[in-house]
Write a protein that binds this DNA or RNA. Structure first.
Lengths: 224, 224
DNA sequence: TTAAAATGATAGTATTACTATTATAATATA
DNA sequence: TATATTATAATAGTAATACTATCATTTTAA
């Protein structure tokens, strides 16, 4: 039931396109599983190599280091969300409906969408929640930004801000709201799971329902 | 012109209270400067030891590892902001005014407040912007949370949410808004500096003015 | 079928993140 | 003032990490 999209990313992110070979796809697949299981800090290329019966050296032929692998994964996620938004809002012209669909994508894209064989979107979403911000909180941001390593996020922000401006052309902070809705969705899912005192949503509630309702409330109120 | 406060933190964060000795204060002082200069990832106890003419072993007597040092610094910041909010809102009963002061503290507490000799609050704020979220995005969050390592942040969120509920008792998401205002302030200062396409504020503008105005706009609109 | 490309196997290096031991200096107490 | 206590320095050592290099072998493509 997999869809036939191939997400193509800035080729500075990798040394060799991992989506085009068996080993490359195995690297993507299992790095997602391992980072989700054990966290980014304890994840190493050596452990990954062991797990997929390959070698450190082979993995290094695809990715310069684990930070760039994370950047690759996170960019993949950003683009995948963008893609879903495009597809799912294609038939709707009402920007308010579009924004609802966008928010739904932020909160639960990974749950109700078929995916690519070698990517577990739900676990990738977990990685984005837990480790995503590390991709752009590094001393090398400016250099990496100039090389286009955050383009997918900026594109996503741009397309959401367009919808926001459609809803309310006078709203002065469309980009801020766009990124805030994304980061807020992620943060509060994470908080609900690990630091519940920092949020108002409990994980008990009908799963993603509470988050979606909350983020929609914020968006609606701000754009009223 | 230093004020006579000593911020006391959860004693699980350190092996030996660094604020009580010369070497300990030097560790705090210079770790802030070094992390601000070179980023958290490249920062090591060895480099710090070299810089302060001490040894790795001595630093390890104060902090278990660099992650706990970061946690210490970030907690210090959270408590310091809490303290400033308490002091600066003491004479105001209007919760709307209080929230304005809170937001001002989030955005520019480090600029217009005298501090503690061994803490450069402005650089510490930079660290919080760039590395702060790493303090609670770790595989060990749940354990660390149970040991009270995020209490300062939760206390801060709590006190802000109280003000929010004072302004609008019917507002359903006081904690969410409290943390969001804090994280939003930090994120968008960082974005303006490094990823300007993700925000609407430019750093050119009269410094913190633009940020404060924006965050206040969000808060006002949501609580209206 | 043969050349080229991809992968595996193995080895090696510098740095990191520690721990341990002993010596020396500073401070507190009797 | 002598002495005990504690803090710090000096030094050494270990396991793991983050790589790089080389060469052999397998797979694929011309």
């Amino acid at each position: 039931m997999s869809i036939e999209i191939k997400i193509s990313l800035n080729d500075g992110l990798y040394l060799k396109e991992p989506q085009d070979s068996k080993l490359g796809r195995k690297i993507i697949n299992h790095s997602i599983l391992m980072i989700d299981e054990c966290g980014f800090e304890t994840f190493t290329f050596k452990k990954l190599a062991l797990r997929i019966n390959s070698t450190e050296a082979s993995i290094y032929r695809y990715f310069e280091n684990k930070h760039l692998l994370l950047l690759f994964l996170v960019n993949w996620y950003w683009q995948w969300v963008s893609y879903l938004i495009t597809v799912n809002t294609r038939n709707d012209n009402d920007p308010k409906v579009k924004l609802k669909i966008i928010i739904q994508s932020f909160v639960s894209a990974s749950l109700d969408n078929p995916g690519v064989e070698y990517v577990n979107e739900s676990k990738l979403h977990n990685i984005v929640l837990s480790e995503g911000m590390k991709a752009y909180h590094t001393k090398d941001v400016d250099n990496e930004n100039s090389r286009g390593f955050f383009k997918s996020y900026k594109d996503l922000a741009r397309s959401v801000s367009d919808v926001i401006s459609e809803i309310n052309p006078d709203f002065e902070y469309p980009f801020t709201l766009a990124t805030n809705l994304f980061e807020m969705s992620n943060n509060h899912i994470y908080f609900a799971r690990h630091l519940p005192k920092l949020t108002d949503i409990t994980v008990r509630e009908n799963k993603e329902d509470g988050f979606e309702k909350m983020v929609n409330y914020f968006a609606d109120k701000l754009l009223a």
